[in-house]
Write a protein that binds this DNA or RNA. Structure first.
Lengths: 237, 237
DNA sequence: TGGGCAAAAATTGTATACGATTTCCCCCAA
DNA sequence: TTGGGGGAAATCGTATACAATTTTTGCCCA
């Protein structure tokens, strides 16, 4: 009888080494902040040198990143920063539109004073980043804001999905954003905080729905996604 | 500049070997069909012996299964078939309730005659399994039915999420189902097919919502699950 | 000059080896 | 009898070695 305790397990238990998680976190940040462009190749031993670990751990990290949608792995060809198609871009925001308004509503029902404080700090950091003109960082913090709401709603499962969706949103924005300024810098997040503080579920839900539509409407989803083809020829030779 | 073509990539490209995928598929089936119980320990070299591969590939497979929510990995302690908590069980069905009705609606708008045929075949197989008293197989087929609807809706992103949710639903049912009979055997799936055939979006959406509530209401989410498990025989035929 | 082909280099895929941690079992003392 | 070491065995984590595949390079010839 090969039985085992196996604790009733929460989302993703502390399953992997700090080593792997550190690599994943660092690469996630780099991609979220657009310091690595969609389509960039990620060589295993190159990353191994950078992080001073063997390819084994790099591979684990790349597989995790693939799962989160930030990286695409092609057999025998290697890993690349993902390059969402237009269809995928649409799907990402459609899925967010299904999940987030309801989550904001739940968060409004549960938010504590401490939670509100935390959200306000997020916004401060975001504004600070914008004023320093670090738009990549600002975008990442803006994504974290949405994740924080899922955390407040105490919805681990949806939070995990949102983590993936927000990651991919970052890539979508890198590829399809129209203007390089004014990223979520609108008052939308402020208004959301107000609704959460007041426990106004209906407002929170509606504000989130509108906010997502607003972001989506600022994407330019007509062009060809493969700017790489022309870009590559322009740069390569 | 390390640019690269990197095809605009769809959900999960053919990234991993047939070897790993075969292991994942076989174990997924075994867990879905309840041939391995929640909490069962999954030793790496034991699985390596069973599938005649090295631990390297087994580890890859286990990590993939962890991503899909079927397996829990604890550092230095090993992998176990996941054992969703009651909270997680609730969350899984809440998330399904957010995603599936809308997906059924979209499917109703797009379903072709061929799609309908495919769904009907699914139901036939499911009934056949029930009559042979293979309840595990029937349950798995029932899950596949829901996935098929997402495929018809042409929503790759949501389909990927649903795959995880349905996997976990299978575990939830293994742990918390009240009566061992009558799994989704209701007319719900038949009614859904009718709505899809008629292109009746509203009905499809409502039927799906009701169907999910119906399943959820048959769970007993008060007890504390604690089961031991035997492995080995369930996998290799 | 440009295309095509073959060999070399680079890169990824898989297996194995070894160190680290946990688990199990036996023995002994209270 | 029971509870607690302590060491051996089992198991997992990471690095390295080698095989398979792809990509690049260099050469020849039209």
């Amino acid at each position: 009888m090969t039985a085992s305790p196996s604790e009733s397990a929460y989302p993703t238990a502390p399953s992997t080494v700090p080593g792997v998680e550190a690599i994943v976190a660092e690469m996630t940040d780099a991609i979220h902040e657009h310091r690595i462009q969609p389509g960039a190749k990620l060589r295993e031993d190159e990353l191994g040198d950078i992080f001073n670990v063997s390819r084994t751990l790099v591979r684990q990290a790349l597989h995790k990143l693939e799962h989160s949608g930030l990286v695409t792995i092609q057999r025998n060809r290697g890993a690349f920063v993902a390059k969402p198609s237009i269809k995928e871009a649409r799907e990402v925001f459609e899925a967010r539109a299904l999940l987030e308004p309801q989550t904001a509503r739940a968060a409004a029902e549960r938010a504590s004073a401490q939670d509100i404080e935390c959200l306000e700090k997020h916004i401060e950091d975001e504004h600070a980043a914008i004023h320093r003109n670090e738009m990549g960082l600002a975008l990442k913090l803006s994504g974290d804001f949405h994740l924080e709401i899922a955390r407040i709603a105490d919805q681990d499962t949806i939070e995990a999905f949102l983590r993936q969706l927000i990651s991919r949103s970052s890539l979508v924005i890198a590829l399809y954003w129209r203007r390089r300024n004014a990223i979520c810098e609108s008052h939308a997040h402020h208004a959301l905080i107000d609704a959460l503080r007041d426990g106004d579920c209906n407002s929170a839900e509606e504000l989130m729905k509108g906010h997502l539509l607003d972001i989506f409407s600022q994407l330019d989803l007509r062009d060809r996604p493969d700017g790489a083809a022309s870009l590559k020829e322009a740069l390569k030779r």
